[in-house]
Design a protein around this nucleic acid. Structure first.
Length: 233
DNA sequence: GCGACAG
DNA sequence: ATCTTGTCGC
């Protein structure tokens, strides 16, 4: 069954056209929304590369217990170079293909990359959220845009990520002794609730489970089978 | 000319 | 992201 796309547009475009698409879609972003309720299906997505092929993985977990429900992978040819600020045009086509194969409808997307903490407020997490009209959260491993102070080394501690006077994200310590992650609004969720959701998805690793499992799945792991032997993950 | 620069 | 073994530290 095809994914319902709310704001369709081509992905195979030039970098100039990509920027124009971002400028158009940024008007649609909703920066508020609730915490996922019990039973919500959260889907983590990530992409790995093997030569000229992009392999995307989508892993669905149930919130808040984080039981893995389903996983799907898809490989598509790479058609766009890596350009900071235009990551969605390189990775989203593969992610969408993986989501098509997932036997469950995502209710919240957790993306390995930024949301509105982006020069045009249109990181891949935001782009996917608006494109699919789904609540989405960006959880990146490093900064793309903005200034911040390092948060204390305590789980749950965070400091704002600023672009001038505008708070565009949070630098969040998910685990003591590990470098922080960069959490931002993707779409249809508040920053406060995005931070709380990420923390509620942490299980002893730096990255929250949806994204962490998607990363493993993109590397070829069967997280559903392994999930039945929790020590393997 | 010299940094900064998701994955 | 990817190329890649052992090794320092808790």
């Amino acid at each position: 069954m095809p994914l319902p796309v709310r704001h369709p547009h081509p992905w195979n475009v030039s970098p100039e056209e990509a920027v124009a698409i971002q400028q158009r879609l940024r008007e649609q972003v909703i920066r508020e929304g609730p915490m996922p309720g019990p039973g919500t299906v959260i889907v983590g997505v990530d992409v790995g590369f093997r030569g000229e092929l992009a392999r995307a993985a989508a892993v669905a977990v149930r919130f808040p217990d984080l039981t893995p429900l389903a996983q799907a992978v898809a490989e598509v040819p790479v058609t766009f170079p890596y350009i900071p600020g235009l990551l969605a045009f390189r990775e989203a086509p593969a992610i969408l293909a993986a989501l098509e194969r997932l036997p469950l409808s995502p209710q919240v997307l957790m993306v390995d990359g930024h949301g509105i903490s982006h020069p045009r407020r249109m990181g891949i997490a935001t782009h996917l959220g608006v494109y699919l009209d789904l609540p989405s959260i960006g959880c990146a491993k490093s900064k793309l845009w903005g200034r911040y102070e390092m948060p204390p080394d305590e789980p749950g501690a965070w400091s704002p990520l600023w672009d001038g006077e505008e708070m565009i994200g949070a630098v969040l310590r998910t685990q003591a002794g590990a470098s922080p992650v960069f959490v931002s609004i993707g779409h249809r969720i508040s920053l406060e609730n995005a931070i709380a959701t990420v923390m509620a998805c942490v299980r002893g690793h730096r990255l929250p489970e949806p994204t962490r499992l998607a990363h493993l799945a993109a590397g070829g792991a069967d997280v559903l089978a392994a999930g039945r032997q929790p020590r393997l993950l």
